[in-house]
């Protein structure tokens, strides 16, 4: 398993109903491509986050397939419309089967 993996997200705590808000997400991860070799010539096995999803109250907001060419510490910034108060759930899927989760509540106000 990759070391030091830490998800972080930035979501405003409040929004007007129907407002499009900006969400920023970042996960610290080496994103080893599987193309590189170590000093003795052996291939360093691929180890990346291969999928990232965001859901709001059970509804899919974004679902991303990630490929080996994406660099270290993948960062995504996207917009979401908030119709009601609720919770954003973020999930990252690692090649090694690990799943990293984070969530953020948002109020209407």
């Amino acid at each position: 398993m990759a070391d030091g993996v830490k998800p972080r997200v930035k979501v405003p705590s409040k929004a007007a109903a129907g407002e499009a808000i900006t969400i920023k997400t970042l996960i610290s991860h080496p994103m080893e491509s599987g193309q590189r070799k170590d000093s003795s010539g052996n291939v360093i096995p691929r180890s990346i986050i291969n999928r990232f999803t965001c859901e709001f109250n059970g509804e899919s907001v974004i679902d991303i397939t990630m490929e080996p060419a994406i660099s270290t510490n993948p960062y995504f910034e996207f917009e979401a419309t908030v119709p009601e108060a609720g919770e954003f759930k973020f999930t990252w899927y690692d090649d090694d089967g690990s799943v990293y989760k984070d969530s953020k509540k948002i109020e209407i106000g």
Binding site: K6, R8, K10, K24, L26, S28, N73, Y75
Partner: peptide, 10 residues
């Protein structure tokens, strides 16, 4: 949040 250097600060 946008500054990748802050990951290392954490």
């Amino acid at each position: 949040f946008d500054n990748p250097g802050m990951i290392f600060v954490d």
